[in-house]
Amino acid sequence: MKTVLVVDDEFDLTSTLKAVLEDRGYRTCVCATGRETIDCLRHTRPDLILLDVMIPLGSGYTVLDRVRATADLAGTPVVLMNNVPPPADRAVRWQAFIRKPLSLAAVVEAVEKLIGPGASAGREVT
């Protein structure tokens, strides 16, 4: 089962994303701060990271720098999320950007496009 790491400090948002992604057959991990995310990535190798930029204790960009600097994480697709677009002068090191407030369809589409459908996709409901 593919794993999506959801990084956001907004409780209602992470709860919803976790439920929706699990319904679609993905395993999820949730972190609420930059520090927690970096700790988590020491022992977790997600298939994709949904990464909020405005998080406490290390911003999303700090986490992204760490991901790209870690050999076996460097190729992990990252979907950035924020209320404002990333500054144009930042080097593009993420695979997708989704502007907040989030559209669920946009999140699911980005995840499926980058790592394919979850385990439940295509299963018949009996």
Binding site: D9, E10, F11, T14, A32, T33, V53, M54, I55, P56, S59, N82, N83, V84, P87
Partner: peptide
């Protein structure tokens, strides 16, 4: 001014830490 969001004004949620 959207350009200040996340650059000069950082919005964070303390709810998970509080919970």
């Amino acid at each position: 001014k959207p350009e200040h969001v996340s650059e000069r004004i950082v919005y964070v949620s303390g709810y998970p830490a509080l919970k």
